[in-house]
Design a protein around this nucleic acid. Structure first.
Length: 410
RNA sequence: GGGGGAGUACCCAAGUGGUCAAAGGGGGCAGACUGUAAAUCUGUUAGCUCAGCUUUCGAUGGUUCGAAUCCGUCCUCCCCCA
């Protein structure tokens, strides 16, 4: 589909962070269909935008005729990757890992074409969970120098705070994954976020030692803001790809509100728009850059949640922030008339529709002038709503400037 | 295994018998200003039946009129030695 070397595409769009052998990898990707893999450890029950950038890369690669192997870390998830972490993460139970692995598999299948072996989904639990300890040590452990591991970047912060032997083994496990996939599917290339660099080159080395063949690795820039902070964090935590955890509307809003400085980068990394268009939109200034943000929000939402949801989110946004029709698809709650009357106090209502985590928070918000009903500021925590506040069967609550919630009364 | 140190709210971190729901910073939320941006300024940031009450300072049991602060036990982590 794409006649250009995908390596150049990835480079141009700003994905690339580090490559083990730049010329050879480029050559390889330009001359044959390459099986490559990216691993996803099931640390939660949904993928988030951090993973999405990896998925984008897989999609680019697949479009160029390469074969993505998405590896779900049902085995490595049992140990936990210490890379870049300052603290040990909580150990997960087998049940949690399995549950999360299934959720990942389901989500990944939306982005890649798994038909006829054009992409493969594997779970490293398959080969890691039943490893024999001594055999593993003798086959794999022998090739790892502890001295060298200790100098690896990924352990740095942990050498100050403490690192358990459990986590220290993570690198061997991931390297073994690469070896296993190399044997099984002739995988020669491992991709990953830049925090995976140490783990990836360890695997590359292992394959060279054990198999005597070449293997390569490549990492991608993590999605960070202009200030270097990790992007994709919301008040609720991560920005999830699961619509149940982060609604398409919220998802859209996140990108609509991105920093000016990050717009261009996000357009390049998170959409398939041609680079000329990315350049054009990214160079808009002042309020004109809002146009670029709209495109960004729409495009990313479209890829993640589909066109229909993207349209809805866009329409809702226009209705709320522009002057479009008032009756839009806004996040909301439907209440019976009885429920509504029972909770007609503003604080009770806010609490009922989960706009506030506690009633104390609600009182605080009202006192600070942060709550509006039908665009009228509520000035008293004792304010009571009546049927007169219901217009066409619903009323619109707004928290702060941007959080809208529609309450429909039946 | 021996010795030393530490565990405080979302995070970092002060507090070492009452004036502590607990300084300060970060983050979050809200207000002002704006472009649904950033920066800046202001307020706020345990819960509830809120000018009153309840629960909180690793866990648990004590001492005391009264403890985050003192004592016992336990758990976890870090450092030094082996």
């Amino acid at each position: 589909m794409n006649s250009r070397n995908v390596f150049d595409v990835l480079k141009e769009r700003g994905y690339l962070a580090q490559v083990t052998h730049e010329d050879e990898v480029r050559e390889l990707l330009g001359s044959e269909s390459v099986s490559f893999y990216i691993g996803f450890d099931p640390t939660a029950d949904s993928l988030h935008v951090g993973h999405f950038i990896q998925i984008m890369v897989m999609m680019h690669m697949q479009r160029s005729g390469h074969r993505p192997i998405a590896l779900v870390g049902g085995g490595t998830g049992m140990v936990g990757d210490p890379s870049g972490k300052t603290d040990m993460r909580k150990m997960m139970t087998l049940e949690m890992v399995e549950h999360n692995s299934r959720a990942f598999q389901k989500q990944l299948s939306r982005f890649l074409d798994f038909s006829e072996g054009q992409a493969i989904l594997v779970n490293n639990a398959e080969w890691l969970l039943n490893l024999n300890y001594v055999e593993f040590l003798r086959e794999v452990g022998i090739h790892f120098s502890v001295n060298r591991m200790l100098t690896a970047e990924c352990f740095k912060s942990r050498l100050e705070k403490g690192l358990s032997f459990l986590e220290f083994n993570y690198m061997l496990m991931q390297s073994y994954d690469f070896l296993e996939l190399n044997r099984k599917y002739n995988v020669k290339l491992q991709l990953g976020g830049d925090d995976q660099w140490s783990n990836i080159i360890a695997g590359v080395d292992l394959i060279r030692r054990v198999q005597g063949t070449s293997a390569y690795g490549m990492t991608f820039n993590l999605l960070t803001t202009g200030e270097g902070k990790k992007m994709g964090k919301t008040e609720a935590g991560a920005l999830w790809l699961d619509p149940e955890k982060t609604s398409p509307y919220e998802f859209y809003q996140y990108w609509r509100n991105i920093d000016d400085a990050d717009v261009k980068k996000c357009l390049a990394l998170l959409t398939f728009l041609p680079m000329e268009e990315v350049e054009r939109l990214g160079s808009l200034k002042d309020e004109k850059i809002n146009e670029a943000k709209k495109v960004l929000a729409y495009e990313v939402t479209k890829i993640v949640h589909g066109k229909a949801e993207a349209e809805k989110a866009k329409a809702a946004t226009e209705a709320l922030f522009g002057q479009g029709g008032a009756d839009a698809e806004v996040p909301g709650t439907t209440l019976s008339a009885v429920e509504f009357r029972k909770n007609s106090n503003i604080i009770d209502l806010l609490y009922l529709v989960k706009l506030i985590p506690s009633k104390a928070e609600g009182r605080r918000l009202v006192k600070q002038g942060g709550i509006y009903v039908n665009d009228e500021r509520i000035d008293s925590i004792d304010h009571t709503l009546t049927d007169r506040d219901i217009r066409d069967g619903s009323l619109m609550i707004r928290r702060g400037k941007k959080v809208y919630h529609k309450v429909t009364v039946e």
